[in-house]
Design a protein around this nucleic acid. Sequence first.
DNA 1: CCATGCCAACCTACTAACAGGTAGGTTTGC
DNA 2: GCAAACCTACCTGTTAGTAGGTTGGCATGG
Lengths: 187, 187
Amino acid sequence: MDTKTALLDSAETIARQRGFDGFSYADLSAAVGIRKASIHHHFQTKAILGQAMMERYRISFDDALSEVKRGTNSAADRLRGYVGLYQDALQGGKTICLCVALSSDRNSLDDATLNEISRFHAMSLAWLETLFDDAKSDGSIKSVMDSKLEAAQCLALVEGAQLMAHAQHDVDVFISATELLLARVSA
Amino acid sequence: MDTKTALLDSAETIARQRGFDGFSYADLSAAVGIRKASIHHHFQTKAILGQAMMERYRISFDDALSEVKRGTNSAADRLRGYVGLYQDALQGGKTICLCVALSSDRNSLDDATLNEISRFHAMSLAWLETLFDDAKSDGSIKSVMDSKLEAAQCLALVEGAQLMAHAQHDVDVFISATELLLARVSA
DNA sequence: CCATGCCAACCTACTAACAGGTAGGTTTGC
DNA sequence: GCAAACCTACCTGTTAGTAGGTTGGCATGG
């Protein structure tokens, strides 16, 4: 496999378990099998690696969202798919969404990476807003209020649920926290 | 002021801005005005300091919750007070709840501190569950479902809203994310 | 077809800064 | 005179990052 991709893969895996400050070039070196110094050949600084990692994550998450949209018919199903993405990302409580993981260590990130996080949020909010707009039309989600606010609430909820579930290494925490949201569609 | 208290104050302030990995004994030394080595006289290890910090935070938050309960008459007012606590803790987006801050760096925490985080969650959930139980009686919050689930959802929401608001250093993100929750009481 | 040059990819060996923590001595106030 | 509180000076390990050399494959020109 391409070394650069392997580095991004390992960095993402560890970052999603331990945060941005939680992985070092030494960790990556061990995981990928090249010397620490050689990593700098692919990513000159950790900041550059961080940005590349977050950018790739945002794009692949965007793809996943498109996939959810393509594979569902109602807004309700789409919401189930969305929450499912976050639940899957938990992997039993051991890992979290990269965006949540990096948000925590915001002080060690450079502006470019922070900007990627903002773009991730904006992308998610726009996707959710469309979802709730559609829900108003197809009536598949109960008592939808302002779509923008529904989107903001929904994103904060899944991110917070992930954070808590990860803190306790228990996916049930996530399930409980999102149950009422999903109850608005499954009744 | 008591040096030990000053150390806890500084540690909490920095931890709430930058996380547990985000502050060092050197930082505390500079903030409090004693030498790095002297800090070990008060807190032998950083793990001990972390636990003491989280324990103190949990207790003082418990007090704040009691205060909210004492100062309000309806479940609705209590919920407003609760969300207000989290919004105040943001201080414009610069700091977050210590529990959210430490949850992020869970891998650098020892078991005692993780346990404090669990106790914080349990305490919050119990308090919120009572709140929603009372809301069912006094009818001051719209369409309350299962109280346990409402509590889990509410806690995840405010923690997630804090995380996002902090990531973007913008308190409005918190306000948007919690607006619909508060709309259930202010209508 | 082979010599030359070139460059990406990797290496060893190092640095300066910083982390948490320790050993052991000094100050200060009851 | 004793102990809590603080100090200087140090240690070991880890961090991101750098300097500079080696390797191996590919393209070009004779």
